[in-house]
Structures are given as structure tokens and as C-alpha cells.
Amino acid sequence: MKIAIIAKSYYIHNYLLCLHFILRIKIDVIYALKENINLMDIGAYRFRVIALDSLEECVNNSDLIIAHERDILTNALKKIILFSKNFGKQIILIKSNWDDGFITNLNGHLDSLDARDAAIPNSLPFAGELLVYNTIISLGRKVKSYFDYGALEWLNSSFNDTLLNSSFVLSQHDGFSSYDTLFNHININSNSDLMQLDKFVQYSKPDFVIVLTNSSELDRTTALCEKIKCLLSTDLLINNCRQKYLFFL
């Protein structure tokens, strides 16, 4: 299937990292607008990615269009809908972005930790997080991590049953089996979120911290890493993963 993704570069990048296990379909090619993906990057993904000049080309060339409503100017969105209708293409309009929920139910996380046996729900399905999760699973590790209801709702509302890889999504939802890796997530979107990091790290005492960030957030990321270093008294190895987005490990 040929899929056009019309969204901010960040979300396109997210999809390109995880669409192969979020959806149950075989993906042949991904189309994106040139203004939203750098030509230098398109060879870095598992999919064949083609950057196009116009919305019309994106819609016309693809079988399925994933469009993030909030990233697109109203006029552009109207065009996408019109082109999809004219060309008879399936369109999925994503109404909310992946990072809309923030530190969902932090206290709930901490309660779960105290209970020891309980898993910690991921508040958000960040693609990088999913990628790490998928990698750990593929190594045969038992991971205790699942989407919370908000995230599940996002996946279910965004993609219909015929597209969604329900086996993957549902497998996340077992909070009671044994595990050897506990995978937890916190979203830092503001300085006040950064303040809550102390509490979160002190309770969860992670062995590894992975910071996923957009390179345009460098200042805040540097501050965040400095803070994590202080809280954990550990070295922070920085791995600049293929440059586009920075993964701090």
C-alpha cells in the first residue's frame, strides 16, 4: 500500500519509525511533502520514502492519506479532502497529536510503583518509545508496559479495525504477567513538567534513561539531561542517532 503522510516533520518521522507495527498492512512507499521532510533523510528509514512538491501529487500517488488536521492550514486541509474525494482515495484525519496528553496520571504511576507488581502504563505512544519497546520485545524480553486508555483511544480513534495491528496494541495491555523489563515514560513539555521529573525519577530509579527529543529543543534537552545526571548520579552517554532526532541514552 502507498501511504501519504501530511503532518509536521516530527510526526512523519514518528510514523516512519513505527507504522510497520502499528498497522497490519504491507507498506510499499510513503509519500510526504518536501517542505516536511529533508531529502537528506529519506534514505534513513525502513520504508521507501518519496518527497513530493504538492498536496495534489501526494494524494494522487497514494492509496491512503494520513493527515494531521492540527498541523495543516485550513485551506490546505480543504484541498486534501477535495483531492481525496476527487481521486477516490481513503483518508484518515488525525484530530489530535501524539503528544497531546502530558504526564497522564503521574500519581497513578507512583502508586503502581509502590505496589511493585503493577505495571506502569505508558501515557503516550511516542514512536521512539514504541521503537525501543519493539526492539526489546524482539530480543525476547518480557516487557511490562502498555498504553493507557488515552493512548489506546488515540490509536483506535485514529485507525480503523481493518488497519490497526490489534495484536500488537492489545499485547501491551497485560498489566499482571511477570516481566523483566519495566518500561516507563514521562513527557516533558514545559518547565513545570521538568519540575515533576525529580519526583518521577526518584520513585522509579531507572537503570537507563532515554531522552527523545527534537533537535529544535536543544536548550531544554540540555537542561533536562543535566537534571537527570544530577538526579541519578550517573554518567549520561549521548548517542546522536542519525542526527535528525537526538536520542540521549
Partner: peptide, 14 residues
């Protein structure tokens, strides 16, 4: 400068 090592990335995306 903190951006030095990310400059190539930043200058081509941002």
C-alpha cells in the same frame, strides 16, 4: 557552543 556538534542537523532542518 552547545550547538556545535548538532549544527549540521540544525542548519539543514530548522
Amino acid at each position: 557552543h552547545p550547538a556545535t556538534k548538532y549544527l549540521d542537523d540544525i542548519m539543514h532542518h530548522c
